[in-house]
Computed example of a mutant assay.
Amino acid sequence: LLLAPVDEDAIAIAQANLDSARAQYNSIANSVTSDDIRTAELTYQNWLQTYNALIALRDQAPGGYGSIAYNTYDAQAGAASFQAEIARLQLEQLRNSTSPQLGAAGARIRQAEAELARLRAGAQPAQIQQQEILLQQLRERVKRAETGFYRTILTAPFDGVISAQNAEIGALIAPNVTVMELTDISPLWVTIQVDELDIRLLRENMEATITLDALSNVEFSARLDKIATLGQNINGIVSYDVRLALTQDDPRIRIGMTTEANIIIENRKNVIIIPNAYIRRDRDNRAFVNLVQGNTIIRDVPITLGLIGQTTSEATTGLTIGDVIALDIAQNRFMQNN
């Protein structure tokens, strides 16, 4: 352990005190009285009693050896022992001297000599160790206090709004109780369930459109943000959560609104599209339509389909722009689409 550095100023003061005590000793010539000796005896006995009382308190200190109370009483007992020794020396000097002032002066000389020697030696290793233990205990107390303080602070893990608050100010909170719920609204997002047969068609960053029941005939653009890795089996049907993030802000949109989403798997321009209701398939999954030419209906004209949507599909071959196709024929009437 490192010792405390020697204080030269304190040593100079101690040396001056020693010189003064020696000078006073040499100038004293009074005789010693019985009252002086009695007073010195009482002083010595008082310090002994104080020392013994502090030792008893130290041995019964809470926490035992090494605790803060133990170290405090131990330090006080050391100081009392030092004072008792001075009182004993003073009593001895008075008993053996012809003057009480001379005995006291001699004791002061010895006290000044002891103080000077202590300062020159610096702090003792045992004293330094005792203070280091006390300092470590104080640091632990500060650390526990800081931990308790920071446990009273809730830090939001992300920016958002408080969507639910389940506690009131001043209420006692039990462990594992949700105090509040934080909702991330930047951006707003929608979670939909996609069947396992269709999930293979999706990938992140695909474009999508979202409509809200509360805002009819208004479409909002979105982007496929995340596809769940783990599916959910509900009544034998496996589906996966897909999160769509809105790419535009609109103050009319509120959290919790009912939505419908359409994900754009592939997009093509300048192609021929026909309603799916006009398409017929055979057992080999080939596609046909009824083509109208003038007043004549040519049945089962083969066509080749490209992209197939929920309501319309792309015809890559078999039709040209302007062709008229029939939906069904009944009683010489038919519905046409071009």
Rank of each mutant, 00 (worst) to 15 (best):
Q193L: 04
I273N: 01
T155L: 00
I173F: 02
I68A: 07
G106M: 06
V194G: 01
Y65S: 10
L305D: 06
I128C: 04
T311F: 11
A16D: 13
R139S: 12
A287K: 02
I329K: 04
L307V: 09
D241F: 05
L57N: 05
V301N: 02
L307A: 01
Q248E: 15
I255F: 05
I185Q: 10
A277F: 00
T312H: 14
T316V: 10
L215H: 09
D241T: 02
D282E: 02
A287W: 07
L42R: 13
N290S: 14
A105R: 03
Q127T: 11
N295Q: 15
M335K: 12
Q293T: 07
D195T: 06
D241H: 09
P62L: 09
Q60D: 14
A23G: 12
L154W: 03
V301T: 14
E314H: 00
A287C: 03
A87W: 02
P100C: 12
A4R: 13
R139H: 08
Y150D: 04
A112D: 07
R144C: 01
P157G: 11
D241Y: 03
I255V: 15
L89W: 00
L197S: 14
A156T: 12
R333P: 00
N217H: 06
R38T: 14
Q111C: 06
T147S: 10
Q60A: 12
T211Y: 01
T72L: 11
T72Y: 06
I274R: 05
P157K: 10
Q15M: 05
I253W: 09
A75S: 08
L307W: 02
T259W: 00
D213R: 09
T316W: 03
A228Q: 05
L138E: 15
Q336H: 04
R110C: 00
M257P: 08
T43E: 12
V190T: 01
L197M: 10
T317Q: 15
Q60V: 04
Q49E: 14
E204N: 05
G318R: 04
I279L: 07
V190G: 04
G122V: 08
A61M: 11
M180I: 03
D74K: 09
F288H: 07
Q60H: 11
Q336K: 14
R280W: 01
I37G: 00
A277M: 09
T152D: 06
L291R: 09
T98F: 09
A23H: 13
S221D: 13
N270E: 15
V190W: 01
R118Q: 15
G160S: 12
R144L: 13
Q49C: 03
D198G: 01
A87S: 15
F334H: 06
A61H: 08
G294R: 12
N285F: 01
I234H: 04
R286Q: 15
A245V: 09
D184V: 02
A53G: 11
A171W: 02
L327A: 05
I133S: 11
D195K: 10
S313Y: 00
E314V: 12
P251R: 13
Q310R: 15
R299D: 06
Q49Y: 12
